[in-house]
């Protein structure tokens, strides 16, 4: 009799393992999803970091190019001053002053006001195309709303969360509703994947664009 009652926990354990444990393990599925999220966050952050690095390299190259060009010009113009090429200097400064005035460029004018011509410069016809959108620095319609999603996750926390869930999933099977959520999550994974792909593709294009533009701009 004692031996028979001693079997009770064994049977219960076996039943729990065989019956309950064989049912879907939603914690394991959610742990898998959190792990995937951990990886995605890393991939997307890396892709965006590539853009920033490409832009910074490009900006640096551009600035160096500008400095070199300015130095060459300064040497040239300085030599005119030394050799008393006053007409040439006046023409140079006069033309630039007019171009700056007509172009509306916010350049600091340190030149003598000696415009060689008072005639109005024909300016390009106004564009008939839709107006260019405001620069992204302006407060614009493109700015994210306060409800806009933001990112930049602490990936270590995600990893810990996934580990906890995986441990839970190894020996527990929770309520039906969680299983339902897991099924739902599986059904929308592809749609989330499409948006992730767009993020990766935009990041790649932007990084490549930065490199190409930089190469074009710095070559004279």
């Amino acid at each position: 009799m004692k031996r028979s009652f001693a079997l009770i926990p064994v049977v219960l354990g076996a039943l729990l393992l065989a019956g309950c444990a064989s049912s879907p393990r939603p914690e394991t599925a959610i742990a898998g999803a959190v792990t995937t999220l951990y990886q995605r966050v890393g991939e997307l952050e890396a892709a965006r970091a590539d853009i920033v690095r490409a832009r910074q390299r490009n900006l640096e190259a551009l600035r160096q190019n500008t400095e070199r060009t300015r130095a060459e010009t300064a040497i040239l113009v300085g030599s005119w001053r030394l050799s008393k090429h006053d007409e040439r200097l006046a023409l140079y400064e006069g033309v630039l002053a007019t171009a700056r005035r007509e172009g509306g460029a916010p350049e600091a004018s340190t030149q003598r006001n000696s415009a060689p011509s008072k005639r109005r410069i024909p300016t390009p016809e106004p564009s008939t195309s839709p107006p260019a959108p405001p620069a992204p620095d302006a407060p614009d319609a493109l700015a994210p709303s306060s409800s806009a999603p933001e990112g930049g996750a602490d990936r270590a926390m995600l990893a810990t969360s996934a580990q906890s869930l995986a441990l839970l999933g190894a020996h527990r099977s929770p309520a039906e509703q969680i299983v339902t959520y897991v099924l739902y999550l599986q059904s929308v994974r592809a749609e989330i994947g499409r948006i992730e792909e767009r993020a990766r593709s935009s990041a790649k294009d932007a990084a490549q664009g930065a490199t190409i533009t930089g190469a074009a701009t710095t070559s004279r």
């Binding site: 966050v41 997307l44 994210p144 999603p149 933001e150 749609e191 989330i192 948006i195 993020a199």
Partner: peptide, 8 residues
Amino acid sequence: ASGAALAL
């Protein structure tokens, strides 16, 4: 797109 994917 990164933000939208994370929010989802």
